[in-house]
Every structure is written in structure tokens, then in C-alpha cells.
């Protein structure tokens, strides 16, 4: 009885206007932003890429309930793989994305086989350790990765052989947007599929899921690999659009920021990830622009305010306002 209602509650976005409205709003928002802020295309492209990255973390943390602080590992591997692929093999962007996804998935698989056996604090620490090992390796392998100077000399061919990357960043903006859009649609299908429901079940009650015969470990590894592939795509996008991969792609601060953005927006909701990223990066950008020294106050108080007053994230704000309790 209660299991039925949970599944029914998990699937409402599949029917009715709710299916089409959010993607249309997203599309309209992109057009409006494109026309309103033609001089901030670079920054807005960064937001779009970060949205892809945070979405990948939402699948792992928000849906499967796997809390890690090393999500930058997959992002960095995707970025380096796509950068090296563009330099040495082919300048085609879409092939590069595929390579980035494969690299992210591969490192997620290798590390996930170990990580998904751990829980709580040791899982957090293990995921950090994996990222640190990768960062140090990239930093020492100067011959291949350029070490601390970063990987330079990436030049991309046109997207689909038609759209050249331009100086203002118009192509980059729409390229990143299309990738985000496709990934969002894919994730909507994934989280509503039996696999996605199993992940939610694992998050809410692992023992019950084990009792009904779900192989927890394999599902978690699968979720980690899928999230890793998407994170790799985000890294590849950064490499292709900025033509640079720096060692900071593996930074601990990046993993921590992704978690903050996700929980800020609302973990376990795809649009929560998007809203959290948009709000965090915009506030960060504006506050740092107004006062480059004290912007951290703004971020700190914003984060505290959300945790104390909107524990389900910014995405729950409209519902809270409607109820006004």
C-alpha cells in the first residue's frame, strides 16, 4: 500500500503539462538570457556546464543517496581525456564529448568498485583521496598533461562540421545548452525508470531494497558510473570551450562547491540542481564583482539561511510560500 503510493508519488512528472513545461521554460530562459546579456555569454556558458556537472552529482547524491566529496575526479578525467583527444587525435567536439564521457565512466567504475563498499565518513574521505591521487598524478606527468601549467593548445573543429566556435562565444553557449538539454531529458527518463526508482529506494531504505532482491552494490556502482560519464561530459565541455585544462579541475573546492550548489537548490530534484547552480553562481559572480574581498560573507549567510529556513532547497520555496505556514 505505502510502497504503491511512493512509486505513484515518484512518477507524477511523467504526465500532463508538467512533462513539457519545465523544458520549455528552460529553453525560453536560455533565449531571454542570450538576448539580455550578450556580454556575459562566457559566464553563462560556465553556468550551463556547471549545471551539467551538478546534475550528474544529483543522480549520485540526490537520487541514490551516495554522499561523496570527490566528484571532481570524473570531471577532471573527462577534461583531460577530451583535451588530449582534441590535441592528438581529432578536433571533432562531439567525438571529444564521447571520449570525456568514457573517461569519466571508466574512472568512476574503477574507483566506484572500491568506494561503493564504504559508507559515511570513510566514503567521503576515500572519494577525496582518489581525487587527490589523480590530481597529483596529473601534476607530476608534466610530459603528457603539462603539469601545473595546465594542458594548452586545444583547438576545436566546428560542431557537427557546421558551427565554428566564435570569439564572442555564441556557438559555445548554444553548444553547452544543447548538451545540457539532452542530458536533462536523458536523466528525466533515467530517474523515472525502474532503475531510478531502485536508486531512490536504496537511498530511503537499503534494507528493504535488499529484502525485495535488489543488488544494492551493483545498482550503486551503475549509478556512480552513469554520474561519472555525465561529469566527464561536463569536464570535456570545459576543456573544449576554454581550450585549457588546468590542474584545478581536480580541486577539492570544486567537489565541495558542487555539493553546496546541489543541496542549495534541492537534492533529489533535477530542477533543484539547475536552480541551485544558477543561484549560487549568479550570487557568487555579483557579490565578487561588488566586493572582491568580502563576497564570502554573502555566500556563507545564504547557505546558512537556506539550511535553516528551506531545508528542502530553493526549489521548495514556491510550495512554502503557497502554504505560508
Amino acid at each position: 500500500m505505502s510502497a504503491n503510493s511512493t512509486i505513484a508519488a515518484a512518477r507524477p512528472q511523467i504526465r500532463g503539462a508538467a512533462t513539457f513545461l519545465p523544458p520549455i521554460i528552460l529553453l525560453a530562459g536560455a533565449f531571454v538570457a542570450f538576448w539580455l546579456f550578450p556580454y556575459d555569454l562566457g559566464f553563462m556558458t560556465r553556468i550551463l556546464i556547471m549545471m551539467v556537472f551538478v546534475l550528474s552529482f544529483d543522480l549520485i547524491l540526490g537520487y541514490a543517496g551516495i554522499a561523496t566529496l570527490g566528484h571532481a575526479a570524473m570531471y577532471g578525467c573527462g577534461a583531460y581525456a577530451a583535451g588530449l583527444f582534441a590535441i592528438h587525435v581529432s578536433a571533432d567536439p562531439l567525438l571529444g564529448l564521447a571520449i570525456g564521457a568514457a573517461a569519466g565512466a571508466l574512472i568512476a567504475l574503477v574507483s566506484g568498485l572500491l568506494l561503493m563498499r564504504a559508507h559515511g565518513l570513510s566514503l567521503l574521505m576515500l572519494s577525496i583521496a582518489v581525487t587527490m591521487v589523480l590530481q597529483e598524478t596529473a601534476s607530476k606527468a608534466r610530459g603528457i598533461t603539462g603539469g601545473a601549467d595546465g594542458l594548452t593548445g586545444i583547438s576545436m573543429g566546428p560542431v557537427l562540421g557546421i558551427f565554428e566556435f566564435d570569439f564572442i562565444g555564441k556557438t559555445a553557449f548554444w553548444y553547452a545548452f544543447c548538451v545540457l538539454f539532452v542530458i536533462l531529458l536523458v536523466l528525466r527518463v533515467v530517474v523515472a525508470s525502474p532503475f531510478g526508482l531502485a536508486l531512490r529506494g536504496i537511498k530511503d531504505s537499503p534494507s528493504r531494497m535488499r529484502a525485495i532482491g535488489t543488488p544494492l552494490y551493483r545498482r550503486k556502482v551503475a549509478a556512480y558510473v552513469l554520474g561519472g560519464a555525465i561529469a566527464g561530459i561536463a569536464g570535456a565541455l570545459t576543456a573544449q570551450i576554454t581550450s585549457l585544462v588546468s590542474i584545478e579541475a581536480f580541486n577539492f573546492a570544486l567537489s565541495a562547491e558542487v555539493m553546496v550548489m546541489l543541496v542549495l537548490g534541492g537534492a533529489g530534484r533535477l530542477y533543484g540542481a539547475l536552480i541551485g547552480t544558477l543561484v549560487f553562481m549568479t550570487v557568487h559572480h555579483i557579490a565578487a564583482g561588488i566586493d572582491p574581498f568580502n563576497w564570502l560573507f554573502v555566500i556563507g549567510f545564504m547557505v546558512l539561511a537556506v539550511v535553516f529556513f528551506l531545508p528542502e532547497g530553493l526549489i521548495s520555496l514556491p510550495k512554502r510560500l503557497m502554504r505560508l505556514d
Binding site: M259, V260, V263, L296, F297, I299, V303, L304, V307
Partner: peptide
């Protein structure tokens, strides 16, 4: 999240 906010402050 809350303690990261405190660190930032």
C-alpha cells in the same frame, strides 16, 4: 552545508 556556511563566515 550548514558548517561550510559557518566556515565561509
Amino acid at each position: 552545508l550548514a558548517t561550510i556556511g559557518i566556515v565561509f563566515i
